[in-house]
Each structure stands twice: as structure tokens, then as C-alpha cells.
Amino acid sequence: MIVCEGLGKSYKHGGRRKQVLANINFSVGPGDRLGLLGRNGAGKSTLIRLLGGVEMPSEGRVRRDMTMSWPLALDGGFQGSLTGYDNARFIARIYGREFADIRAFIEDFTELGRQLSNPMKTYSSGMRARLAFGLSLAIEFDCYLIDEVIAVGDANFQRKCQFELFERRADRAIIIASHSTEQVRSVCKSALVLDGGRGVLYDDVEAAIAAYEQL
């Protein structure tokens, strides 16, 4: 289970504190798929970072009883000056995996070919997303944190995600922040709508999407 208890985050800004999230509560178990909906700046990415332990909450806490991926987002997690292979080696090392085991999977999943030997700063956002997903799937987590990033991939990549993540790993928990109501509708079983720092949890995705579209 991943449990959020009274989670809040505020940032100091010019001597003033800005409350981005306040008193967020929910839990996610194996096989659950939670969508995070909200307008730009509503705190979706911030919540993903708190869940992933990238930033620390100002109030409340996150309890993690299962393994959780790092936030799969447009940036972060990689070093641009290193090649795709070197980044993969680094990630394999810090997660205690053998690079040899992971290599074949990412070569097949990313279809990046010789690009994997080039520095990651030369990658497009879609290519970065492929590698990030490939690595996190090869490492195998119980819960995947996804911040918008599927949307940057092409149709082929989306098909692969659909198969590898949503079908083959249907027992895993997924928390996904997205602007695409279409994606949330097809992937998620429940959704949290963020507005003004507060979160409202809907067990019915259609109701959540209706509330989001009212914002």
C-alpha cells in the first residue's frame, strides 16, 4: 500500500509561503490505478514528487509499503551529458540490478538502436520517455508514478506502454498525472481532482472528469 496522510506542501517565495497542497489523503493498493486531474499549477507534479520522495512534505507523510518507481516525468532522473547506456548502467547500479539483465529489455523496448550510445541531451522528449519507461519496467516496481510523460510518445510507444504496463503488469499500482481525460478514462479506476490545494477523491472516473471539466 501507498498511503498519504494529511499531506501538504508549501514553498517559500519572497519571504511568503505559498500553500500548494493541503491535507491530501488517499491510499493506493496493488492493481489500483489513480488518475490525478487538475489545471496547470494545481499541484499534480508536486504531489507526484512528494509521493516519489523527491521533495519532502511540509505536513503529513507518505507511507510506502511497496516498491515505487521514481517519478517518470519529462525531466529528472538522468544526466544529460552521459549516454543512454551509461545512464542505464547508473540506474541499474543504484537499484541493485545487473545491467546485463536490463540491457536486452531496454534495447527492445526503446527501439533507440545506436542512439543509446549518444549523450542523452541529444534525445527528444519522446526518446527520453522511452528510455525512462524501459528502465522502470525492466527494474520492476510495485507502483509506477507517471507525470504526463506518456503523452509525448508516438503511437508506437503508446501501444507498447499499453501492453507492457497496463496489460502485462495489471497487478501493479499506477498513479498518473494527466491532462488527457481520454487517457484517465481508459487507464484509471479512480481519480483525485486537485483544485486550490485541496484534493477530492472520486471512485467513479466519469464523475471525476465531469468535476475536472467544471473547473
Binding site: V54, M68, W70, A73, G76, G77, F78, I91, Y95
Partner: peptide
């Protein structure tokens, strides 16, 4: 950028 990995 590496702080994305919680164990670091």
C-alpha cells in the same frame, strides 16, 4: 536531477 531517485 538525480534526486528523483529516492535512495540517493
Amino acid at each position: 536531477g538525480l534526486m528523483y531517485h529516492r535512495q540517493i
